[in-house]
Structure formats: C-alpha cells, structure tokens
C-alpha cells in the first residue's frame, strides 16, 4: 500500500519510523518496569548511581549517546563483536536505529512509570500479602494494574521520543534509505538537497499528525483506565 501523496522512499521512511518506535517501546518496557519499580519501592546502596545512569541519555548530547553506542555495538565494539557471529549485528541496521531510539526513550519511560508506581498505595500491596499473595502475584494483580495510566503515559512519551530521535540514530546507524532512514533522517536529507522543501513539508506535516494522534490515543486510554480504577488508591499525578 502506498499513499499517493508520498513517494515510495518517503513512505518507506514513515513505515521504518513506526517500526523502529514500536520496537523501541516494546524493548524498553520490561527493563523500564524493573528499573522504575526498584527505584520507586526499594532503598539500596547505589540507588542514586542507578538513577543518574538511567537519566544519562536525557542529559547527554544525543550525538554522544550515539557515538557511545557505536563504540560498544559497532563492528569493532565489545558488544558488537559478540553479536556479530550470532547474526545479531545492529550496526547500520534498522534494529540499531530501534536500539538507539530505545536508549533515548528509556529515561522518559522510567520517569513516568516510577511516578505511577510511587502513586500506588503500598497499603494495598500489604493487604494483598496478608491475603496470601506472594510478591510477584501482588505485583501483577495489584501494583501493575493500578499503575497502568502512568505506564501508558510513559509508553507514549517513549514512542514519541523514538519517532523523533535523530542525533543518536544518525551517529550510530547513519542515514541509509530503506534501512536506517527514519522520518527525521529523511526530513534532514530532504533539507540538505535543493528543491525538496515541499517533500520536507509533507513529511513534517505527517510527523506532526502521527505525534498528535499518539498523544490523543494515549490520553484517551489513560483516562479510561483511570476511570476504571477511579482514582481511589492511586494518587493523581
């Protein structure tokens, strides 16, 4: 399927961006769940260090993050050399773009999820324990469902960040049409070439449309879930 207003290359970039953003969000989610829950509920040695590390991609210039990824996951990097023989190389592949997007979106996901975990009343978790529920079951049946509005918010933030990620992606996996050229990279490429302003504006408009749609959908879902939970036991954040 091809939208008539988009050239095949542009359409490829849109599809790739969606694929990269969706996978980045899905990959980040389990790790972000673990990290945000630990940060919200536990006190341990090195907590501040973990918190700072988790925030790094938000603070560092994206080009630095991208270069660090290239150093570790690139063909000569320590992790890249492990992945290469396994056929899991991410360098200059769409999966590399997804990894870069996941790393950049991770702090946003963790921040939103941590807030929503902190907002779940620990007294409800205690009540579940007194009823015989072991810790993992308490998490799945009480903590997680009550934190869903915040998790949805975090996921959409992560998705939007992944859609828009440019600096780290282009540094890490370059700008290869059909493989690593996402929407922002495509817009950038169009702006570099003369006479392509109209094409660039088409993609810019599309980019705005996708972002706003994602935001509205997430707001709607979060509201529905929050209405089901009704705000009792969950402080509004």
């Amino acid at each position: 399927m091809t939208l008539s207003i988009l050239s095949p290359e542009e359409w490829t970039a849109v599809q790739l961006s969606l694929k990269v953003a969706i996978w980045a969000t899905i990959f980040s989610l389990p790790i972000a769940t673990a990290v945000s829950y630990v940060l919200a509920r536990h006190v341990f040695w090195g907590k501040q260090v973990l918190n700072a590390l988790m925030h790094l991609p938000l603070i560092l210039p994206p080009v630095v993050t991208g270069y660090l990824l290239l150093l570790s996951f690139g063909p000569q990097g320590p992790i890249g050399q492990i992945l290469e023989p396994l056929g899991l190389s991410v360098a200059f592949r769409w999966s590399g773009a997804a990894l870069a997007a996941a790393v950049m979106g991770f702090p946003l996901l963790v921040r939103a999820m941590r807030l929503s975990f902190e907002a779940v009343d620990p007294k409800l978790e205690e009540a579940a324990r007194t009823l015989g529920a072991p810790a993992p079951w308490v998490f799945i049946t009480v903590t997680l469902p009550l934190a869903v509005p915040g998790i949805l918010t975090g996921m959409i933030l992560c998705f939007a960040k992944a859609m828009g990620e440019f600096g780290a992606t282009i540094t890490f996996v370059a700008n290869i049409p059909g493989e690593t050229q996402t929407l922002p990279s495509a817009i950038y490429a169009l702006l570099q070439a003369p006479g392509q302003e109209i094409a660039a504006i088409r993609l810019v408009t599309l980019s705005i449309f996708i972002s706003i749609t994602a935001l509205l959908v997430s707001e709607y879902l979060a509201k529905r879930v929050a209405a089901r939970i009704d705000g009792k036991g969950v402080k509004h954040i």
Partner: peptide, 20 residues
C-alpha cells in the same frame, strides 16, 4: 514466616479494598 504464608485474615481500619 513471610506474611503471605502466615494464613492471616487481616481486617484493616481503612478496608484496603482493591479499587480496580
């Protein structure tokens, strides 16, 4: 013995029902 294995019936002052 951890709480979940003590086979309690704990009735709290604030009910603590699961809102969801």
């Amino acid at each position: 013995l951890p709480t979940h294995r003590r086979q309690l019936g704990y009735i709290f002052q604030e009910s603590r029902l699961f809102p969801h």
